Amino acid sequence: MLAAAGVAGVSAALAGCAEEPSGRVGGVPSEPERITYGDDPSQWVDLHVPDGASRGLVVVIHGGFWRAQYGAEYGAPLAEDLVGRGWTAANVEYRRVGNGGGFPATLDDVHAAIGAVAADVEGPVVTLGHSAGGHLAAWAGGRTRLERWADGPRVTHVVSQAGVLDLRAAVAERLGDGAALAFLGDAGETAYDQADPLGQVPLDVPVWAVHARDDDTVPFRQAEAYVDAASAAGAEATLVEVTGGHFEVVEPGSDAWAACVEVLDSIG
């Protein structure tokens, strides 16, 4: 999820990362395959496939406060880094608030995107998302328990990077100038019941909440509240504290990204 004040800095940081060693174990084998899963221009996935055997699939879900002005370009460096580490990586674009998204359309898109790339995957299917994408990654981990999204491939692991995991708190605190309320729209309790990760606990898949205590965009307590509630309910949930504010978790080459890679290494 990208605060307006931070877009230029993040763009520069991501551009700079392209010129620095990422720690990848191999080169990117080829251009990704563009897969469309609907008729809207925002309904597509770029699928990166490694040379040789794949370790599994990582579905990369970008942030941006669910808003249309922030797109999948922010997930591309992560997908490129992951494919070099032997993962099949799917960088997902989806409809956002301002271009036909919001509840439930954005959730429909994430569900459909996972179905488009994960149906025949052997090995783990991991959702990894940053900020608003962290919300969507965690939601996807439990989506098949809900009737609307019951038919589709299951996610086996979730990695939330500075994710919005408590929508009620996000609305109460007006994170992103009311972005969570804009995403939920006027659906009321139905939206919370179907879209709030905190309300979904306990999941039956492991969740890692990677978050920096000095995050000034999505508060660290979002991760703490989720992990505490999930653990109390008997779920497998791990809080991974990093440094670097809101954005270093999506900067290949940073210590915060290395912590995400370490989580993935523990999976496959």
Rank of each mutant, 00 (worst) to 15 (best):
A53G: 09
E19L: 15
G56P: 06
S131D: 10
D228A: 15
A118T: 07
A225N: 11
V218S: 13
Y192M: 12
R55P: 03
P104G: 07
A191E: 06
P202G: 08
V207F: 02
V25S: 15
A212D: 07
P219D: 07
H135Q: 14
A119P: 01
G133S: 11
V201R: 00
R85Q: 15
S160V: 03
Y226D: 03
G84V: 09
Y74H: 14
H130I: 04
V227L: 09
G84E: 12
G152N: 07
T88D: 01
D186L: 10
W44T: 04
D151T: 11
A137S: 13
A169T: 10
A137H: 02
Q161A: 15
V10S: 07
H246W: 10
A256P: 06
F247M: 13
D204P: 05
D81T: 12
Q43C: 06
F220W: 13
Q161Y: 03
T238N: 06
A233G: 02
L146R: 14
A72H: 13
A119K: 13
R67C: 03
R221L: 01
L78V: 14
L181P: 00
H246D: 10
A116Y: 03
D214R: 01
V25R: 15
A259H: 09
L184M: 12
L78C: 09
N99Y: 04
G142P: 04
A258D: 14
L2T: 15
W139G: 08
T127H: 02
G188D: 15
R96K: 14
A223E: 05
G64A: 11
R34H: 10
Q194S: 12
F65T: 09
D255Y: 01
D46E: 14
A180D: 08
E224G: 00
A68M: 08
E80N: 00
H48M: 00
V249F: 03
W44N: 11
W149G: 12
P202V: 05
T243R: 15
G244M: 11
L128H: 06
V49Y: 00
G9W: 02
G142R: 09
H48D: 06
D177V: 05
I35S: 08
E236C: 01
D255N: 12
A169F: 11
G141R: 01
C260P: 00
E248V: 00
R96Y: 02
G64K: 12
D177R: 06
A116F: 02
Q200N: 05
G163T: 07
A105I: 07
L175A: 03
P124M: 07
G64F: 13
V158I: 10
A138K: 01
E80D: 14
L82T: 04
H211Y: 07
R143I: 12
A179M: 09
E80F: 00
G56Q: 08
W257H: 14
A162P: 11
A72K: 09
Y37L: 05
N91L: 01
G6I: 00
R34N: 09
P153K: 09
A79G: 15
T36N: 11
A53W: 00
H211W: 04
H48I: 01
G75Y: 06
G101D: 06
